[in-house]
Design a protein around this nucleic acid. Structure first.
Length: 548
RNA sequence: GGCCCGUUGGUGAAGUGGUUCAACACACAUGCCUUUCACGCAUGCAUUCAUGGGUUCAAAUCCCGUACGGGUCACCA
C-alpha cells in the first residue's frame, strides 16, 4: 500500500492529471507585459467598497497593459453564500463599466478558462489534490472539531504557537494503511497539505506595494479540502485557479499578507511560479477616536449600493477611489483633463502602505465638479435614469414636463464657470422644488433685512407695475432703478460710502424679490428663475403679499 | 500572546540624506468679487514629519529601542 493507493481510494473517479488540465487550459498567448488580473469575490451578500476598489485596480492593470481582467466566483463556502449576490457583483461592475472580459453567469461561460465558479471546478481541484497525495504532500486528517479545540486550548495554556504543525499534526504520522482503513470505515476526513517548511527560517518575498519583506516559512498543515462538500479552501483554490487561469497579478486586501507563506509553499509543491502580489491597504473609517476597517453593519457607505442610491455619478465614485489608490491621480488628471482614469498609469509602488480613511467630503467635491461640467441634456438623462429607480417624486416632476425640468437644470449651466451646487442626483429635488407650483406651498419665508409687510408689498407692486422684465440684458438695471425710486442705493459702492443716506441697498430689494418668489433667501440667479417661471406665475406668487 | 505591517496637518498625501524638505487636493478660516447662495480669486492653516536615542558636516528620509494603531493565527474568504 502506498500513496497512490490512498490517492485512488479517495478519488477513484478522477482520471485527468495536471498535465491534462495544462493542455485544456494552455498558457495564455500574451507577451510578458500583458497582465492577467482577476476579481474574485465570494458571493456573501453585497458589493463592499474595499472589493470594488480592488476591482478598479485589477481593471486598470489589465487596461494599462492591454491584458485581461476576469471575474471568478469564489463560492466554496456554501454556508455563507447568499443567493443573488453574484448577480449583484456583476451588475455593479457593469454599472461602473468595470466589465470583465471573462466571467460566468447564469450558465453562460464567457472565456476559455472556465468554469469561473469554484463550486463547478471540483474535479479540477481533486485532480490536483490527488497528485499531491500521490507524492506524499497531502494527507487525510481525521481530527474532529473537538480534537482541534483540545489542541488549541493546550497550545494556548502552554503558550506554544497555535496551529496544526509539527507534533501537533497527529494525522500526518498515520501510516498509509491506517489512513486507508479509517477511510474505508467511513470516518469523515479533510485533506491537509503536508508542509515542509520551518517556521524558524525566513524567506524573501516581494510585495508590489510594500516591497521586500522577510517572512517566516509556513509549517502549518492547512486544510485544502473540506470534509462535507469536498470543495477546496481558499488557500488551495487560489493556487489551482490562478495557475490554470494564468493570473499574473493578484490584487487582494492586506489581510491576506499573513497567508503568503502558505501560498508560496503550495505553489512550490507544484513547481509553479507564483503570481505577483499587490496587497492593498484597507479602507478605514473613523469611529470616535479610533479608526477601524469600514464595515457594512455600521457604515452604510461600505456598500456600493449606497452611492448608487444617493445618485453620485459613476465617474465621481471611481475618481474619489482613485485618490486613495494613487494619490497622484488628481494632479495627473488636472494636467490631462481630456483623459479618463483608464488612461492613468496605475503604480502599486505609489500606493500608500497604510490604511486610508475614505473621505465623503472629497467625493462630494469631485462629484460637484463633474456634475457642473455636464450639459443639461446629460444631467437630464442621468438624473432621470436615477429617479426612475430611486425617486418617485422626482420622476413625476420630470415627466410632468421634461423641457421645463431641463430649463431649470440649465440655470447657470453650460457656461465657463458653471454653478456647483449639485453633488448627487438626490440633491436635485430639494434644490428645485419651488420651481413647481404643484409643490410650492411654503409656510416659512426667509426674509432678510426688509421684513415690513407694507414695504414688501410696495416693493413687489412697484416692481411688477414699472420694472418687470425677463430680458437678462436689462433685468438688473431695472432692479437698480426700482431700488433708486424707493430710496435704496442702486449700487453697493454708493451705499457703503454713506449707508445712512439710504433705506437699504439693491441687495435688499433683490432679496425681497427672491424670497417673495421662492420663499428661499438662497437661490441661483433670480433673473433666470423669473424667465423660467414667467410673468403670470410670478405675479400670482407676489400677489399674496400685496396690501391695499 | 507569537508573527507581520504601519505611524508626515482635520482628511487623502508628495517628499527616501542637503540645492524651496514640508508640494498638491479636500475640509476649515478670513478677505475680495457679487442681487442672495454657490462659483471664481487672494490669503491663512504641520518651526515640523508618533517618540527616545544613534550614524552623519547634514535626517521626515539610514539604524536601534519605545509607544500607539492595524492585520493574522478556522473544514471564512
Amino acid at each position: 500500500m502506498n500513496n497512490n493507493d490512498l490517492a485512488n481510494l479517495i478519488f477513484p473517479n478522477i482520471n485527468k492529471t495536471i498535465e491534462d488540465y495544462e493542455k485544456i487550459y494552455p498558457k495564455r498567448k500574451s507577451n510578458d507585459e500583458q497582465a492577467v488580473t482577476r476579481f474574485a469575490p465570494s458571493p456573501t451578500g453585497y458589493m463592499h467598497i474595499g472589493g470594488f476598489y480592488q476591482a478598479i485596480i485589477d481593471y486598470m492593470i489589465a487596461k494599462n497593459t492591454n491584458g485581461i481582467f476576469y471575474l471568478r466566483n469564489e463560492d466554496t463556502d456554501s454556508q455563507r453564500e447568499v443567493s443573488g449576490a453574484s448577480k449583484l457583483i456583476l451588475d455593479t461592475l457593469k454599472y461602473y463599466n468595470i466589465v470583465p472580459k471573462e466571467y460566468e453567469f447564469n450558465g453562460e461561460i464567457v472565456g476559455n478558462y472556465g468554469p469561473y465558479i469554484q463550486s463547478e471546478r471540483k474535479e479540477i481541484y481533486h485532480a490536483f489534490i490527488k497528485y499531491l497525495i500521490s507524492i506524499g504532500r497531502a494527507y487525510p486528517c481525521f481530527c474532529t472539531k473537538e480534537d482541534l479545540d483540545e489542541m488549541r486550548s493546550f497550545q494556548e495554556s502552554h503558550k506554544v504557537r497555535p496551529g496544526y504543525h509539527g507534533n501537533f499534526a497527529k494525522c500526518r504520522k498515520l501510516s498509509v494503511e491506517d489512513q486507508i482503513n479509517l477511510i474505508k470505515e467511513g470516518k469523515p476526513y479533510v485533506i491537509r497539505f503536508k508542509s515542509n517548511g520551518d517556521f524558524e527560517k525566513k524567506f524573501r518575498f516581494i510585495d508590489e506595494v510594500k516591497g521586500l519583506l522577510m517572512l517566516n516559512e509556513n509549517d502549518i498543515d492547512d486544510v485544502i479540502m473540506k470534509s462535507d462538500n469536498k470543495l477546496p479552501t481558499y488557500h488551495f483554490a487560489h493556487i489551482v485557479d490562478d495557475y490554470l487561469m494564468g493570473t499574473t497579478h493578484v490584487v487582494r486586501g492586506e489581510e491576506w499578507l499573513s497567508s503568503v507563506p502558505k501560498h508560496i509553499e503550495m505553489f512550490e509543491a507544484f513547481d509553479f511560479n507564483p503570481p505577483k502580489y499587490i496587497h492593498t491597504p484597507l479602507i478605514l473609517k473613523k469611529d470616535g477616536n479610533s479608526t477601524r476597517k469600514i464595515s457594512k453593519r455600521k457604515d452604510p457607505e461600505a456598500s456600493m449600493s449606497y452611492y448608487k442610491e444617493l445618485g453620485y455619478p459613476k465617474t465621481a465614485v471611481i475618481e474619489s477611489l482613485m485618490t486613495i489608490i494613487n494619490s497622484n491621480y488628481e494632479q495627473w488628471h488636472d494636467a490631462n483633463p481630456d483623459k479618463t482614469y483608464l488612461d492613468f498609469e496605475y503604480s502599486p509602488k505609489k500606493m500608500s502602505s497604510s490604511g486610508a480613511l475614505y473621505d465623503l467630503m472629497k467625493l462630494e467635491d469631485i462629484s460637484k465638479n463633474i456634475i457642473s461640467q455636464m450639459t443639461k441634456e446629460e444631467l437630464y438623462k442621468e438624473s432621470y435614469e436615477w429617479a426612475k429607480n430611486y425617486s418617485e417624486s422626482l420622476t413625476k416632476l420630470i415627466e410632468l414636463d421634461p423641457d421645463y425640468y431641463k430649463a431649470i437644470l440649465n440655470i447657470e449651466r453650460e457656461q465657463a464657470k458653471p454653478r456647483k451646487d449639485i453633488a448627487k442626483y438626490s440633491d436635485i429635488e430639494s434644490l428645485i422644488w419651488y420651481m413647481y407650483d404643484e409643490l410650492y406651498n411654503p409656510t416659512d419665508y426667509e426674509w432678510g433685512k426688509v421684513s415690513d409687510e407694507q414695504e414688501i408689498s410696495n416693493i413687489l407692486k412697484t416692481y411688477m407695475d414699472k420694472y418687470f422684465t425677463t430680458d437678462s440684458e436689462e433685468w438688473f438695471s431695472k432692479v437698480k432703478e426700482l431700488a433708486s425710486e424707493l430710496g435704496y442705493a442702486a449700487n453697493m459702492k454708493d451705499y457703503k460710502k454713506d449707508p445712512d443716506n439710504y433705506k437699504g441697498n439693491v441687495a435688499d430689494i433683490a432679496t425681497v424679490l427672491r424670497v417673495a418668489l421662492t420663499s428661499k433667501s438662497k437661490t441661483p440667479d433670480l433673473c433666470e428663475i423669473m424667465c423660467i417661471l414667467g410673468k403670470d406665475r410670478i405675479e400670482k406668487r407676489y400677489r399674496k403679499f400685496y396690501k391695499d
